[in-house]
Amino acid sequence: MMGMSVEFHDDGCAIITMRNGQNRLNVSTLKQLNDALDTVERNVSAKVLITTGEGRFYSNGIDLDWVASHEGEREQFLQTLWDTLWRIMHFPLPTVAAINGHCFAGGAFVAICHDYRVMRSDRGWISWNETLIHMRISDPLIEILQHKLSAEALRESVIFAKRITGPEAVKLKIVDSTEEEDNLIAGSKRLGLQALGNNNIQRADLQNMKKDLIPRQILQSVNTSKL
């Protein structure tokens, strides 16, 4: 599919690669991502989901130019974004974000909704830069941050919008590990497969446990001026 590829490997790992340049999030790229997630869910042999980008970016966040030029679609876009993030959060397989490059704002939200995250050790930042671009974060996204980041990580990467390197992100527990570029996918596979171990966890049971322990309580924002 244009802009997004899905590969199934013999070890049971499904890999979605985002191929839209900076992988900015708009209606088109969110549809591509959801179509790719549908493809993975339909494959009963898939055991682990890995998402990654190519080149310099995992994702450079929301496509603000698109949002500005499609003001009438803003509310629907935001709802689709929130729904997609929670779909990843509650996905019925172990999920790993293989963060190949820069991962900012909306792209960082995509990454932290995975069960596990692996960054390159030598290149790339993860950051929520809303403070720097005069934007506020909507309640549905704040809920995700509160589920996924510690107070220290929130302070450094969100409140003060610092660009966090892979090794720094490990210390802040934003990501689980770092790998050199050539080992990024292999390391991500290892994490995902180790999560399952020898347990025969059924998809429905895994999804139900995620929903119970990481419940979605804010379905929409009362203030859509925030992203």
Rank of each mutant, 00 (worst) to 15 (best):
S5G: 04
D65S: 12
T39P: 00
M89S: 01
H147L: 14
I50F: 02
V48G: 02
C113Q: 06
I164W: 13
N200C: 10
I218F: 15
T178R: 11
N20F: 09
N34Q: 15
V67Y: 11
I15V: 14
D83H: 02
V222G: 00
G53D: 07
C113I: 05
C103G: 05
I126E: 00
G197N: 12
E143D: 07
A169L: 08
R136M: 05
D176I: 05
M2I: 00
N200I: 00
T178A: 11
G12K: 09
R117F: 05
N26E: 12
H102R: 05
L193W: 00
K162F: 15
E181I: 08
G72N: 10
I185N: 05
A204E: 12
F77A: 07
G187R: 05
V175E: 04
I16K: 08
T39C: 04
S177C: 13
V96Q: 05
Y58W: 01
T131H: 15
L149W: 05
L206Q: 10
T95N: 15
H90I: 01
S221V: 09
G197L: 13
N129L: 00
E130C: 14
E54V: 01
G21M: 14
T39Y: 11
I16Q: 08
L154D: 08
L78F: 01
D83I: 01
A204D: 08
W128Y: 06
A195Y: 00
F8E: 07
R87H: 04
F160S: 13
C113N: 03
G192Y: 01
M18P: 13
S221A: 11
R190G: 08
A186G: 11
P92H: 06
R74D: 06
R19K: 07
T178N: 07
A68V: 09
A153N: 14
E75W: 00
V27W: 13
